[in-house]
């Protein structure tokens, strides 16, 4: 009885959320995977179990390979760009910039905007008109005599998705900066002092003391950005709509479910998105659980 008294109240407290998560997250996930393994290719018929047929078959579709490639380009540019820019901003702040608070607020502001609003503004900024018809950023280049920089932005066939990552970088780098800034502040001054006393140059202090201690922060930032990027939908739809030229798995999934009316195909794509996100998230969870246990 005494032992039960110790754990039961806690359990009762979390029970509603456990129930909700079990039904609405894991139940739905399971339902989705079950649907993905059937041949229910329209909304009316009852699907039969077909195993992993949908999962292998989808790779024969040109559109699928294209959207996966797009997602990879987008993720690499977005995650890399946001990490670099965020780190750079945090580094400058950390060097004791005057008016740090103001700058911090300015860089964090984009976080308060939804991806849809960002997308609408950047659709205009990234208008593909060049020369006399240039508007947005191309016009700005024109104004500064940098015509050679004008390009098609997200309509460029090969690097369009890199352009699509720019608004995402703009939006998320402030958040990454905040993470890194906390990381920088978490490095004890004594360690730096000790290194300096040992004759380290400022560069070496960063290289050997500060950067290694930022590793956990970098990892968290990577996970957060990575899963946002793989699920990217709203930004892309707001910038270019459901066009093939900027197709990614999440948009393809929407089209499969609501336009093609093919639930099994949509579920398959959704399953692949979940798997791709888990590749990022599960190692992180394992790693942080282990760390908690160690401390």
């Amino acid at each position: 009885m005494t032992r039960m008294r110790r754990w039961l109240p806690g359990l009762l407290l979390v029970a509603p959320s456990i129930a909700a998560v079990a039904v609405f997250v894991y139940g739905m996930l399971g339902w989705n995977f079950r649907l993905a393994m059937t041949d229910q290719h329209d909304e009316v018929t009852e699907g039969k179990f077909v195993g992993l047929e949908n999962f292998t078959g989808i790779w024969d579709q040109q559109r699928w390979s294209l959207s996966v490639n797009h997602a990879i380009v987008f993720t690499v540019v977005f995650v890399g760009g946001a990490l670099l820019l965020g780190w750079l901003l945090a580094f400058l702040m950390e060097k004791g910039l005057r008016g740090e608070g103001t700058f911090r607020a300015i860089y964090l502001f984009p976080m308060a905007i939804s991806f849809v609003a960002t997308g609408v503004v950047w659709r205009w900024l990234m208008n593909s008109g060049t020369g006399e018809r240039a508007v947005g950023l191309n016009r700005l280049f024109d104004f500064f005599g940098l015509e050679f920089l004008q390009w098609q932005w997200f309509r460029d066939q090969d690097w369009g998705m890199a352009a699509m990552a720019i608004p995402a970088i703009w939006q998320m780098s402030g958040y990454v900066m905040a993470l890194f800034l906390a990381g920088f502040r978490g490095v004890p001054e004594e360690l730096r002092e000790a290194a300096r006393v040992d004759g380290c140059t400022e560069w070496k202090v960063y290289r050997h003391i500060v950067l290694p201690m930022l590793r956990p922060v970098t990892l968290s930032a990577l996970i957060i950005l990575g899963h946002i990027s793989l699920k990217a939908f709203d930004l892309i739809v707001a910038v270019s709509g459901k066009q093939i030229i900027t197709d990614v798995p999440a948009v393809f999934m929407w089209v499969a479910v609501f336009d093609s009316h093919d639930p099994a195909k949509g579920a398959t794509i959704a399953a692949y998105i979940v798997i791709a996100v888990s590749v990022f998230v599960i190692p992180y969870l394992v790693w942080s659980l282990r760390k908690e246990r160690r401390s």
Binding site: R63, L66, I244, I245, D247, H261, D262
Partner: peptide, 14 residues
């Protein structure tokens, strides 16, 4: 129908 139209749109986009 919707499915066919979506497939045509996909083919044209590609």
């Amino acid at each position: 129908n919707d499915a066919w139209r979506t497939a045509i749109n996909e083919a044209v986009g590609l």
